[in-house]
Protein backbone atom coordinates (compact mmCIF):
# COMPACT_ATOMS: atom_id res chain seq x y z
CA UNK A 1 0.00 0.00 0.00
CA UNK A 2 1.10 3.59 -0.52
CA UNK A 3 2.30 5.68 2.45
CA UNK A 4 -0.32 7.76 4.23
CA UNK A 5 -0.88 9.74 7.42
CA UNK A 6 -2.94 8.53 10.36
CA UNK A 7 -5.21 10.33 12.73
CA UNK A 8 -7.33 8.87 15.50
CA UNK A 9 -9.64 11.44 17.08
CA UNK A 10 -11.75 10.67 20.14
CA UNK A 11 -14.76 12.76 19.19
CA UNK A 12 -17.26 12.43 16.35
CA UNK A 13 -17.17 16.11 15.44
CA UNK A 14 -13.39 16.31 15.23
CA UNK A 15 -13.39 13.21 13.03
CA UNK A 16 -16.10 14.68 10.81
CA UNK A 17 -14.20 17.97 10.47
CA UNK A 18 -10.99 16.16 9.51
CA UNK A 19 -12.61 14.32 6.58
CA UNK A 20 -12.23 16.15 3.28
CA UNK A 21 -14.42 13.96 1.11
CA UNK A 22 -16.22 10.61 0.84
CA UNK A 23 -14.77 7.34 -0.47
CA UNK A 24 -17.13 7.50 -3.46
CA UNK A 25 -16.15 11.07 -4.36
CA UNK A 26 -12.43 10.28 -3.97
CA UNK A 27 -12.82 7.62 -6.67
CA UNK A 28 -14.43 9.95 -9.23
CA UNK A 29 -12.03 11.56 -11.69
CA UNK A 30 -11.72 12.58 -15.32
CA UNK A 31 -8.95 10.15 -16.19
CA UNK A 32 -9.16 7.39 -13.62
CA UNK A 33 -6.69 8.81 -11.09
CA UNK A 34 -8.03 8.72 -7.51
CA UNK A 35 -7.87 11.82 -5.30
CA UNK A 36 -4.41 11.77 -3.65
CA UNK A 37 -5.19 14.65 -1.28
CA UNK A 38 -8.20 12.99 0.34
CA UNK A 39 -8.56 12.54 4.10
CA UNK A 40 -10.96 9.61 4.49
CA UNK A 41 -12.87 8.13 7.42
CA UNK A 42 -12.12 4.53 8.39
CA UNK A 43 -14.12 2.18 10.63
CA UNK A 44 -13.34 -1.54 10.21
CA UNK A 45 -11.39 -0.63 7.10
CA UNK A 46 -12.13 -3.85 5.24
CA UNK A 47 -13.48 -2.30 2.04
CA UNK A 48 -11.24 0.77 2.37
CA UNK A 49 -8.01 -1.28 2.54
CA UNK A 50 -9.22 -3.44 -0.35
CA UNK A 51 -9.77 -0.35 -2.51
CA UNK A 52 -6.41 1.13 -1.45
CA UNK A 53 -4.52 -2.09 -2.16
CA UNK A 54 -6.11 -2.16 -5.63
CA UNK A 55 -4.93 1.41 -6.27
CA UNK A 56 -8.52 2.62 -6.60
CA UNK A 57 -8.08 4.94 -3.62
CA UNK A 58 -4.94 6.85 -2.68
CA UNK A 59 -5.80 8.94 0.38
CA UNK A 60 -3.23 11.26 1.94
CA UNK A 61 -4.67 10.56 5.39
CA UNK A 62 -6.93 8.07 7.15
CA UNK A 63 -9.10 9.17 10.07
CA UNK A 64 -9.75 6.25 12.39
CA UNK A 65 -13.24 6.06 13.91
CA UNK A 66 -12.49 3.10 16.15
CA UNK A 67 -11.14 5.06 19.09
CA UNK A 68 -14.38 7.02 19.45
CA UNK A 69 -16.05 5.66 22.59
CA UNK A 70 -19.68 4.62 22.46
CA UNK A 71 -19.94 3.77 18.77
CA UNK A 72 -19.57 0.03 19.50
CA UNK A 73 -22.71 -0.31 21.65
CA UNK A 74 -26.13 -1.83 21.13
CA UNK A 75 -28.74 -0.16 23.34
CA UNK A 76 -32.43 -0.83 23.84
CA UNK A 77 -34.44 2.36 23.33
CA UNK A 78 -38.28 2.52 23.37
CA UNK A 79 -38.51 -1.19 22.66
CA UNK A 80 -36.31 -0.87 19.60
CA UNK A 81 -32.53 -0.99 19.23
CA UNK A 82 -29.97 1.74 18.69
CA UNK A 83 -26.92 0.12 17.12
CA UNK A 84 -23.58 1.91 17.02
CA UNK A 85 -21.87 1.93 13.61
CA UNK A 86 -18.70 0.30 15.01
CA UNK A 87 -20.59 -2.81 16.15
CA UNK A 88 -18.95 -5.69 14.31
CA UNK A 89 -20.90 -8.15 12.19
CA UNK A 90 -19.92 -10.87 14.71
CA UNK A 91 -21.30 -8.88 17.63
CA UNK A 92 -24.51 -8.18 15.72
CA UNK A 93 -25.02 -11.82 14.77
CA UNK A 94 -24.42 -12.98 18.37
CA UNK A 95 -26.55 -10.34 20.11
CA UNK A 96 -29.52 -11.95 21.83
CA UNK A 97 -32.03 -9.17 21.17
CA UNK A 98 -31.03 -8.97 17.51
CA UNK A 99 -31.36 -12.76 17.14
CA UNK A 100 -34.71 -12.91 18.91
CA UNK A 101 -36.49 -9.87 17.50
CA UNK A 102 -34.63 -8.95 14.31
CA UNK A 103 -33.75 -12.39 13.04
CA UNK A 104 -33.28 -11.32 9.41
CA UNK A 105 -30.56 -8.87 10.47
CA UNK A 106 -28.75 -11.44 12.63
CA UNK A 107 -28.86 -13.87 9.71
CA UNK A 108 -27.62 -11.31 7.18
CA UNK A 109 -24.75 -10.23 9.46
CA UNK A 110 -23.86 -13.78 10.51
CA UNK A 111 -23.56 -15.06 6.95
CA UNK A 112 -21.62 -12.10 5.52
CA UNK A 113 -17.98 -12.69 4.59
CA UNK A 114 -15.90 -15.10 6.70
CA UNK A 115 -15.64 -15.41 10.51
CA UNK A 116 -12.26 -13.62 10.47
CA UNK A 117 -13.69 -10.70 8.51
CA UNK A 118 -16.92 -10.54 10.55
CA UNK A 119 -14.78 -10.00 13.66
CA UNK A 120 -13.27 -6.88 12.06
CA UNK A 121 -15.98 -5.48 9.77
CA UNK A 122 -18.48 -3.01 11.20
CA UNK A 123 -22.17 -2.52 10.44
CA UNK A 124 -21.52 1.11 9.39
CA UNK A 125 -18.80 0.01 7.00
CA UNK A 126 -20.95 -2.82 5.68
CA UNK A 127 -23.64 -0.31 4.67
CA UNK A 128 -21.08 2.01 3.08
CA UNK A 129 -18.98 -0.62 1.24
CA UNK A 130 -18.66 0.03 -2.47
CA UNK A 131 -20.23 -2.34 -5.02
CA UNK A 132 -18.39 -5.47 -6.11
CA UNK A 133 -18.82 -4.75 -9.84
CA UNK A 134 -15.57 -5.95 -11.44
CA UNK A 135 -15.49 -2.98 -13.80
CA UNK A 136 -15.76 -0.54 -10.87
CA UNK A 137 -12.98 -2.50 -9.12
CA UNK A 138 -10.72 -2.64 -12.18
CA UNK A 139 -8.18 0.14 -12.69
CA UNK A 140 -8.24 -0.71 -16.40
CA UNK A 141 -11.91 0.29 -16.71
CA UNK A 142 -12.78 3.96 -16.26
CA UNK A 143 -16.48 3.34 -15.82
CA UNK A 144 -19.40 5.71 -15.38
CA UNK A 145 -19.37 5.33 -11.59
CA UNK A 146 -15.74 6.54 -11.48
CA UNK A 147 -16.32 9.54 -13.76
CA UNK A 148 -15.97 7.82 -17.15
CA UNK A 149 -18.66 7.66 -19.79
CA UNK A 150 -19.26 3.90 -20.18
CA UNK A 151 -20.95 1.23 -18.10
CA UNK A 152 -19.00 -1.79 -19.31
CA UNK A 153 -21.49 -4.21 -17.79
CA UNK A 154 -24.22 -3.64 -20.38
CA UNK A 155 -22.21 -5.17 -23.23
CA UNK A 156 -19.85 -7.14 -21.03
CA UNK A 157 -19.77 -9.76 -18.30
CA UNK A 158 -22.98 -8.91 -16.47
CA UNK A 159 -23.89 -12.22 -14.82
CA UNK A 160 -23.61 -10.71 -11.33
CA UNK A 161 -25.28 -7.41 -12.17
CA UNK A 162 -28.67 -5.81 -11.62
CA UNK A 163 -32.02 -6.97 -12.94
CA UNK A 164 -33.88 -3.84 -11.75
CA UNK A 165 -33.33 -0.07 -11.94
CA UNK A 166 -30.05 -0.24 -13.87
CA UNK A 167 -30.46 2.98 -15.82
CA UNK A 168 -26.92 4.15 -16.66
CA UNK A 169 -25.10 1.71 -14.37
CA UNK A 170 -25.81 -1.93 -13.53
CA UNK A 171 -24.17 -2.41 -10.11
CA UNK A 172 -25.95 -4.30 -7.37
CA UNK A 173 -25.72 -3.00 -3.84
CA UNK A 174 -23.38 -5.36 -1.94
CA UNK A 175 -24.76 -5.05 1.62
CA UNK A 176 -26.99 -7.90 2.77
CA UNK A 177 -27.41 -6.12 6.13
CA UNK A 178 -28.99 -3.26 4.16
CA UNK A 179 -31.51 -5.71 2.66
CA UNK A 180 -32.55 -6.75 6.18
CA UNK A 181 -32.57 -3.21 7.60
CA UNK A 182 -34.94 -1.98 4.88
CA UNK A 183 -37.36 -4.80 5.77
CA UNK A 184 -37.45 -3.49 9.36
CA UNK A 185 -37.98 0.17 8.31
CA UNK A 186 -34.66 0.99 10.01
CA UNK A 187 -33.36 4.55 10.14
CA UNK A 188 -29.89 6.07 10.20
CA UNK A 189 -28.66 8.91 12.36
CA UNK A 190 -26.05 10.91 10.45
CA UNK A 191 -23.84 13.51 12.14
CA UNK A 192 -22.14 16.32 10.22
CA UNK A 193 -18.97 18.33 10.93
CA UNK A 194 -20.85 21.04 12.87
CA UNK A 195 -22.46 18.39 15.09
CA UNK A 196 -25.78 18.71 13.29
CA UNK A 197 -27.73 15.50 13.05
CA UNK A 198 -30.10 14.30 10.39
CA UNK A 199 -32.24 11.21 10.26
CA UNK A 200 -33.02 9.22 7.14
CA UNK A 201 -34.67 5.88 6.52
CA UNK A 202 -32.26 3.22 5.24
CA UNK A 203 -34.52 2.91 2.20
CA UNK A 204 -34.12 6.62 1.32
CA UNK A 205 -30.41 6.66 2.20
CA UNK A 206 -29.51 4.54 -0.83
CA UNK A 207 -29.58 6.12 -4.29
CA UNK A 208 -30.27 4.69 -7.72
CA UNK A 209 -27.92 5.58 -10.60
CA UNK A 210 -30.54 7.81 -12.18
CA UNK A 211 -30.36 10.01 -9.05
CA UNK A 212 -26.54 10.02 -8.89
CA UNK A 213 -24.37 7.56 -10.79
CA UNK A 214 -21.22 8.40 -8.78
CA UNK A 215 -22.36 7.27 -5.33
CA UNK A 216 -24.62 4.67 -3.72
CA UNK A 217 -26.01 6.81 -0.89
CA UNK A 218 -26.68 10.36 0.26
CA UNK A 219 -23.69 10.63 2.64
CA UNK A 220 -21.92 13.96 2.14
CA UNK A 221 -18.29 14.86 2.87
CA UNK A 222 -17.73 15.09 6.62
CA UNK A 223 -20.87 13.16 7.49
CA UNK A 224 -20.67 10.07 9.71
CA UNK A 225 -23.34 7.41 10.24
CA UNK A 226 -23.51 7.58 14.06
CA UNK A 227 -26.39 5.18 14.75
CA UNK A 228 -28.62 2.60 13.11
CA UNK A 229 -32.12 2.62 14.63
CA UNK A 230 -34.41 -0.39 14.56
CA UNK A 231 -37.96 0.49 15.59
CA UNK A 232 -39.75 -1.93 17.92
CA UNK A 233 -41.32 -4.68 15.85
CA UNK A 234 -44.92 -5.72 16.63
CA UNK A 235 -45.32 -8.84 18.78
CA UNK A 236 -46.60 -10.79 15.78
CA UNK A 237 -43.69 -9.88 13.49
CA UNK A 238 -41.54 -12.65 12.07
CA UNK A 239 -38.60 -12.16 9.76
CA UNK A 240 -35.85 -13.94 7.97
CA UNK A 241 -33.04 -13.39 5.52
CA UNK A 242 -32.09 -15.92 2.86
CA UNK A 243 -29.35 -15.84 0.27
CA UNK A 244 -28.04 -17.92 -2.56
CA UNK A 245 -24.32 -17.95 -3.33
CA UNK A 246 -22.20 -19.50 -6.02
CA UNK A 247 -20.15 -21.28 -3.34
CA UNK A 248 -21.22 -22.81 -0.04
CA UNK A 249 -18.77 -20.76 2.00
CA UNK A 250 -18.30 -17.00 2.12
CA UNK A 251 -19.19 -14.78 -0.80
CA UNK A 252 -21.40 -11.91 -1.73
CA UNK A 253 -24.68 -13.49 -2.84
CA UNK A 254 -26.01 -13.97 -6.36
CA UNK A 255 -29.35 -13.14 -4.78
CA UNK A 256 -30.64 -12.43 -1.28
CA UNK A 257 -33.99 -11.54 0.23
CA UNK A 258 -35.31 -10.35 3.57
CA UNK A 259 -38.95 -10.78 4.52
CA UNK A 260 -40.83 -9.43 7.51
CA UNK A 261 -44.45 -10.43 8.09
CA UNK A 262 -46.95 -9.28 10.69
CA UNK A 263 -49.55 -12.00 11.01
CA UNK A 264 -52.70 -12.11 13.15
CA UNK A 265 -55.21 -14.98 13.03
CA UNK A 266 -53.59 -16.25 9.83
CA UNK A 267 -54.10 -12.90 8.08
CA UNK A 268 -51.06 -10.97 6.87
CA UNK A 269 -51.42 -7.46 8.34
CA UNK A 270 -48.19 -6.13 6.91
CA UNK A 271 -45.47 -7.50 4.65
CA UNK A 272 -42.02 -6.19 3.82
CA UNK A 273 -40.16 -8.04 1.05
CA UNK A 274 -36.74 -6.71 0.08
CA UNK A 275 -34.40 -8.10 -2.58
CA UNK A 276 -30.62 -7.72 -2.38
CA UNK A 277 -28.10 -8.20 -5.22
CA UNK A 278 -31.02 -7.34 -7.50
CA UNK A 279 -30.65 -3.59 -8.03
CA UNK A 280 -28.22 -0.73 -7.38
CA UNK A 281 -30.03 -0.22 -4.04
CA UNK A 282 -32.01 -2.61 -1.81
CA UNK A 283 -35.12 -3.35 -3.89
CA UNK A 284 -38.49 -3.34 -2.18
CA UNK A 285 -40.84 -5.75 -3.94
CA UNK A 286 -43.97 -3.65 -3.48
CA UNK A 287 -46.22 -5.71 -5.78
CA UNK A 288 -45.40 -8.81 -3.73
CA UNK A 289 -46.08 -6.94 -0.48
CA UNK A 290 -49.44 -5.75 -1.85
CA UNK A 291 -50.35 -9.28 -2.91
CA UNK A 292 -50.02 -10.49 0.69
CA UNK A 293 -51.38 -7.57 2.70
CA UNK A 294 -54.82 -8.23 4.18
CA UNK A 295 -54.92 -11.77 2.80
CA UNK A 296 -55.04 -15.14 4.50
CA UNK A 297 -51.56 -16.68 4.16
CA UNK A 298 -51.42 -19.92 2.19
CA UNK A 299 -49.18 -21.67 -0.25
CA UNK A 300 -51.03 -20.52 -3.38
CA UNK A 301 -51.00 -16.89 -2.24
CA UNK A 302 -47.30 -17.11 -1.39
CA UNK A 303 -46.53 -18.52 -4.84
CA UNK A 304 -48.39 -15.61 -6.42
CA UNK A 305 -46.53 -13.12 -4.23
CA UNK A 306 -43.14 -14.66 -5.08
CA UNK A 307 -43.90 -14.27 -8.79
CA UNK A 308 -45.02 -10.69 -8.17
CA UNK A 309 -41.64 -9.94 -6.54
CA UNK A 310 -40.08 -10.00 -10.01
CA UNK A 311 -42.54 -7.50 -11.46
CA UNK A 312 -40.64 -4.89 -13.48
CA UNK A 313 -37.46 -6.97 -13.74
CA UNK A 314 -35.34 -6.34 -16.83
CA UNK A 315 -32.48 -8.84 -16.85
CA UNK A 316 -29.32 -8.16 -18.84
CA UNK A 317 -27.76 -10.54 -21.39
CA UNK A 318 -26.22 -12.92 -18.83
CA UNK A 319 -28.24 -12.62 -15.63
CA UNK A 320 -31.69 -13.93 -16.53
CA UNK A 321 -30.95 -16.89 -14.26
CA UNK A 322 -31.43 -14.57 -11.28
CA UNK A 323 -35.20 -14.41 -11.90
CA UNK A 324 -35.64 -18.08 -11.01
CA UNK A 325 -33.38 -17.79 -7.96
CA UNK A 326 -35.19 -14.72 -6.61
CA UNK A 327 -38.65 -16.24 -7.10
CA UNK A 328 -37.51 -19.39 -5.27
CA UNK A 329 -35.81 -17.46 -2.45
CA UNK A 330 -38.85 -15.26 -1.84
CA UNK A 331 -41.22 -18.22 -1.92
CA UNK A 332 -39.09 -20.20 0.53
CA UNK A 333 -38.61 -17.23 2.84
CA UNK A 334 -42.35 -16.47 2.90
CA UNK A 335 -43.29 -20.10 3.48
CA UNK A 336 -40.80 -20.34 6.36
CA UNK A 337 -41.92 -17.01 7.86
CA UNK A 338 -45.60 -17.96 7.57
CA UNK A 339 -44.94 -21.31 9.27
CA UNK A 340 -42.82 -19.90 12.10
Amino acid sequence: MHAFEWMSPQGIESAARAATTTVAAAMVSERGEPDDEAALLKAGGIDLLDLMKEGLLRPRRLINLRDIAGLERIEEVDGGLRIGPNVTLSQLAAHEQVRMRFRALAEAAGTSASPQIRHLATLGGNLLQRPRCWYLRSRAHHCTRKGGDTCFAFDGENQYHAIFDHKGCAIVHPSTCATALVAFDARLEITGPAGTRRGVSVEDFFLLPEADVHRENTLAAGEIVTAIWLPAPPETARSLHVKHCQTESFDWPLADAAVMLEVADGICRKAAIVLGAAAPAPHRARAAEAALTGQRLGEALIRTAARAALQGAAPLSKNGYKLVIFETLVRRALLAAAAS
Binding site: A3, F4, E5, W6, M7, S8, P9, Q10, G11, S14, R61, N64, R66, D67, E72, R73, I74, E75, E76, N86, V87, T88, S90, Q91, L92, A93, A94, H95, E96, Q97, V98, H119, L120
Partner: peptide
Protein backbone atom coordinates in the same frame (compact mmCIF):
# COMPACT_ATOMS: atom_id res chain seq x y z
CA UNK B 1 -29.72 -0.29 29.19
CA UNK B 2 -26.52 -1.20 27.42
CA UNK B 3 -26.30 -4.71 26.03
CA UNK B 4 -23.32 -6.20 24.34
CA UNK B 5 -22.77 -9.35 22.38
CA UNK B 6 -19.27 -10.72 22.30
CA UNK B 7 -16.90 -7.77 22.42
CA UNK B 8 -14.93 -6.54 19.44
CA UNK B 9 -11.33 -7.79 19.23
CA UNK B 10 -10.35 -4.12 19.11
CA UNK B 11 -11.77 -3.49 22.57
CA UNK B 12 -8.36 -3.56 24.26
CA UNK B 13 -6.47 -1.65 21.58
CA UNK B 14 -5.86 2.05 21.25
CA UNK B 15 -3.93 3.68 18.48
CA UNK B 16 -0.84 5.67 19.60
CA UNK B 17 -2.28 9.00 18.46
CA UNK B 18 -5.65 9.38 20.15
CA UNK B 19 -4.78 13.01 20.83
CA UNK B 20 -6.19 13.67 17.40
CA UNK B 21 -2.88 14.86 15.93
CA UNK B 22 -1.92 13.36 12.59
CA UNK B 23 1.11 11.07 12.50
CA UNK B 24 3.01 9.41 9.66
CA UNK B 25 3.49 8.66 6.86
CA UNK B 26 6.79 7.73 8.53
CA UNK B 27 7.08 5.16 11.31
CA UNK B 28 5.24 5.62 14.62
CA UNK B 29 6.22 3.74 17.82
Amino acid sequence: MVMRGNTSPHARSRTPCVTGEAVGPGAVP
